[in-house]
Simulated scan of single mutants.
Amino acid sequence: MKKKPLHNKKNKFTRKQFIVLIVCIATGFMIGYSYKLTKDEVKVNTSYLEQEESYREDLISQKERNKELIEELIALQTKRREYEKTFAENEEDYDHLLQEADKLRLLLGEIPAYGEGIRVILKDSEYDPNSPNPNDYIVHESHVFAVINELKISGAEAITVNGQRIKTDSFIRCNGPVITIDGKQFPAPFVIEAVGDAKALHTSLKIVGGVFDQLLNDRIVVTIEESSLIEMPSINDNDEGVS
């Protein structure tokens, strides 16, 4: 007579226990994977924050250095002018040279300018529903250039556009309703001021077939005013206003 095999109840693995085991393993895996993702994300965010803070500190440091350089430049220019005045007091011939040097500095924008002159205001014309192209009735850099060039030819000693001093190498670019001058944006209307012989500058702009007539043909609203006193900053004063 055969004996039935003995079953060890302690080693018997039920289906319910197997399912519980699978669930526990899956849960542990998900918890571990979630923890790893969270840890990696924290590391990435921390890295970005540290990099952003580093860039911010570099920018602040660079701005402070620029300010120091501007102050140093102004001090050197002032010292140079003091030397020139000393030389001019010792020799009468230097007086003429000093005047010529001041004229050059005015053209370069190194010193503030003031005196009689004119003010030219350029405005966009009113919207024309019959014109499909909005560029047909707004002020462009070509219009600003035309006025500036005519003023220079007519003997303007110094020129500003919306308070920004124009240098010999100034860059002007149109971008829709605004223009950019040496990296700074200015909206319309555009106020162009020039120091010089007011009547001569006014006459040169309004000569028949000249700049004034061309602007009117382009439907630009133009206003020209003579002034007994126009004051404008140097290029260094403009740079100090940058924040």
Rank of each mutant, 00 (worst) to 15 (best):
S170W: 13
A158Q: 00
S204D: 07
H96K: 15
I181P: 03
S142K: 15
I118R: 06
L98P: 00
D182W: 12
N45I: 13
Y137M: 08
T203P: 01
N175L: 14
E72D: 09
G32P: 03
P5C: 04
H140G: 06
T14E: 07
F145L: 04
S125L: 01
L69I: 07
E225Y: 08
D213I: 06
L37T: 09
T46I: 05
E126P: 00
F171L: 09
S154K: 10
N130E: 04
I153R: 11
L215N: 01
G209K: 09
S228C: 09
G210C: 04
R165V: 01
Y35S: 10
D169M: 11
S131E: 06
E72N: 15
P129E: 08
Q77K: 15
K10D: 10
R56Q: 12
N238M: 08
I230P: 05
L216Y: 06
I74C: 00
Q164P: 04
I224N: 13
D102E: 13
R81V: 00
K39M: 11
D124V: 06
G176R: 04
Y55D: 04
Y48G: 06
I207C: 00
L229R: 15
I181D: 00
E53N: 11
N45G: 10
V191T: 15
T78N: 05
E64L: 15
E100D: 06
P5R: 13
Y114H: 12
I70M: 11
D102Q: 13
Y114L: 00
T78S: 07
L49K: 14
K36T: 04
L205E: 07
L21D: 06
K43E: 02
K16L: 06
V178H: 07
C174R: 09
S125M: 04
A188E: 08
N236G: 02
P233N: 14
G210S: 07
S170D: 10
R80S: 14
V23D: 03
Y48N: 12
I138K: 15
D124P: 03
V242I: 14
F190Y: 15
I192P: 01
Q214R: 15
N11Q: 11
K206Y: 07
L49I: 14
E91K: 08
L76W: 07
P177S: 12
S243T: 12
D93N: 11
S47G: 09
G241P: 00
Y127P: 00
E150F: 05
R65Y: 10
Y127K: 02
D95L: 15
K184I: 04
K206A: 00
I25D: 01
E84N: 02
E91Y: 09
K167F: 10
L108Y: 03
K10W: 08
F212P: 01
Y94D: 02
T78Y: 00
K16I: 04
G176S: 09
S204T: 03
S227K: 15
S170C: 08
Y83G: 05
S170A: 10
V191A: 01
S234I: 05
A158D: 03
R173S: 11
K199C: 02
S54H: 09
F29H: 08
E50C: 03
G109F: 09
L98Y: 02
H96S: 08
Q99R: 07
Y48T: 09
K79R: 07
S47Y: 11
D136M: 14
G109C: 12
S234R: 05
V211I: 13
S204M: 10
V242C: 04
L106F: 03
L6C: 01
P233Y: 02
T223R: 00
S204E: 04
V144T: 02
S243P: 01
